[in-house]
Simulated assay, not measured.
Amino acid sequence: MAVRFPRVQTTLNIEGEEVTILREGLRVVFYMPGFHEEVMGAVTQALDRYLHALELESLGWYLDYDGYWWALAEEEPGFLQRKLMDPRGASIEARGRPDSVTGIRFSYVGHSTIPALFARDFPQPMCAVEFWLPTGFLETRGNEAVRSLIVELGRGLPFSSGHAGPALEAWSWGHHTTPILRDRSTRHPGFDLPGPGLGALASYLGTKLRPPAWLNFLGPPVLTELGGAEGLRSRLHSPSTRVEALSPERAVVSLGPVPEAGDLEAGDTLPAYRELARVLEPWLYAHKGSWGDFTEAEVRQWERRFL
């Protein structure tokens, strides 16, 4: 089946070179309660699977702690894996290119202790990991192969929640990207928006849930409160929805065989997404404050777009 979400791309000419500052892609994120040393082995294995799947496409650059980009080709093999296995914690940002959005990206944030500045507001330790796949990867591999890859990325992770689906990746929020982000997210509810920092979002989110996406990963405590995979399955009736238990504590809900963005102007409202949102409403996260250049009111409307 063909990709069922629109191409989105914004470029700027910078000193004679076309640089992509916004594009569509497939975003995969998992949120994991606990400290870094509890999850680092599982995250390293997931990174290995991701890098193996990319084959000729690859992560090319990483960001150091001083904010400078360095070529991974100049480092020893397994450099990112060694950073992940540091018991003191890790904060990793790696991309296909340092100066252009490519749809290939890996991010991870995990702490070995709760920083004193956050202990009062965020007493629960949270780690988060993010993978991006370009749209071309979906077109060449096929939807079922990509779904299987994403499920395998999550299978070994001790997540409380996760999601995967079409998303808009931006180099940064700004006057070049905000109008497009506002227009596309309003018209195509299946698109996820660039978030605040991954670590900050994980801390705010805790064990709450983001809005439904193509693939929805549920773990404790929410899945337990829903009665496990069987209890959740009994509440969902859309013929395109599939609930698969990954373990007694965790499951993935697929909303159709193909990732979709929907199109409100064409009457495509993504009814399966809306059904899941109604079931999960008591556990959905409500962000406080702005989100990028969106006001708090815009963020609230966007978060509740399936309700």
Rank of each mutant, 00 (worst) to 15 (best):
L72D: 04
E76F: 11
P196G: 15
N143C: 12
V39C: 04
R49C: 11
A229M: 03
E144Y: 09
W302K: 07
H111K: 09
D192V: 10
R7T: 15
L84I: 06
E249H: 06
G103S: 05
A266Y: 08
L59D: 04
P221F: 02
V243W: 08
G67K: 06
I104S: 01
A128C: 14
A94E: 00
E303N: 10
H176Q: 10
L56I: 14
A2I: 11
L270D: 02
Y50I: 03
Y204L: 12
R23M: 07
L215M: 11
F79H: 05
T102V: 02
L209W: 05
A2D: 10
P123E: 06
L117M: 10
R278N: 10
H36A: 12
P257M: 12
E298P: 02
T135Q: 06
H176C: 00
S240A: 14
V222P: 01
T113I: 08
G96V: 10
W69D: 03
R97G: 00
A53D: 00
H36N: 06
D192C: 12
G262C: 14
P211Y: 11
T178V: 14
G154V: 01
L198D: 09
G96D: 08
A200I: 13
L12V: 00
V129T: 05
R27K: 13
V253A: 00
W214E: 01
M1G: 09
A202Q: 07
L149F: 11
P282F: 02
H175L: 13
E298L: 01
E139V: 13
L198R: 13
K83T: 06
P259G: 12
L205Q: 01
L181N: 03
R4W: 08
E249S: 04
G199I: 08
E275P: 07
G267I: 13
